[in-house]
Design a protein around this nucleic acid. Structure first.
Lengths: 164, 164
DNA sequence: TATGAAACACACTGAGT
DNA sequence: ACTCAGTGTGTTTCATA
């Protein structure tokens, strides 16, 4: 039974003290719920002074715990209402070619190398279904593709669970 | 040949004037490159007064063009280094059950309904590969799964192209 | 690391164009 | 729909503990 497995380890690169102490976890939680909170407001919520909080957040950014901040734009509003997921199985020796072409194709917003029969999973945004042809034709020079168009999104991308 | 197709339409809900004029597109571009820019700084960059820019951004938010702001946290730093994509084919009549279970499973950070042989595509984060078992067992009550573990990510999630 | 005070920058409002 | 000017916060730096 799975519940007998060890609890998730408190990672945090420790050089003496753990990076993710109580306060930093609360800061992450607050910022995750509202990434535009002012440092003063954050400070109030964790009961510290603004400069102290500013420095802690800066440290989390520099350590890479906070990777960055992202603006979420509605794809349809900028003319890209069609979202599709494409699995790619590269031909022999064409693996890095696929990675290359995908990197310089702006319609591809993310690309993962995965285990299984297919090597890559791509997220693609286009203006209309026929526009997928352009993207797929490019990729098909180096491998075969399996495309699935997004019909709806029961769970919109949401933050990771913060429990540790 | 694909290049003969019509250009991407300038969408923007027009009630007289298009929502996405030159200035708003520049605002989106600047905010996409740095979502934490101050309104004053934004104003400087587009050559307007801060209140004017504040109102324009507010309007973009209210219209849903700007969906929100997101904090990107390194999954490994909070103890979830394993990322996997799971395709789910629900059993007959179990379609909405899968959507339900997936919604209340925090390890699932996004879920798309897609065309093709499988109905759903899920993104899952766990502490270690064996922890996938918990998530998959839940889902397997209502359908079959195909799991692919992420080995690397040649293209990290990146912003949509803003050309129109 | 943290705090407190001072200097500076920003957000917000209301009046005017 | 935008600018300008005034007020209240927020941010940043530095001295200090």
């Amino acid at each position: 039974m799975a519940s007998t497995r060890a609890a998730r380890p408190a990672i945090g690169i420790a050089n003496g003290k753990p990076l993710l102490d109580e306060v930093n976890l609360r800061l992450l939680a607050e910022l995750r719920d509202d990434p535009r909170l002012s440092m003063s407001e954050l400070a109030r919520r964790v009961g510290m002074s603004p400069p102290a909080v500013t420095e802690r957040v800066g440290r989390l950014e520099q350590a890479g715990v906070i990777r960055g901040y992202r603006l979420e734009i509605d794809p349809a509003a900028i003319g890209l209402p069609v979202s599709a997921w494409v699995r790619v199985r590269p031909g022999p020796g064409q693996l890095h070619r696929v990675a290359e072409v995908v990197r310089r194709t702006p319609q591809v917003t993310e690309c993962h190398r995965i285990t299984g029969d297919d090597c890559f999973l791509l997220h693609v945004f286009v203006a209309a279904v026929p526009d997928l042809e352009d993207v797929l034709d490019e990729i098909r020079q180096y491998g075969t593709t399996t495309t699935a168009v997004v019909v709806s999104t029961p769970v919109e991308p949401r933050p990771l669970p913060l429990s540790s």
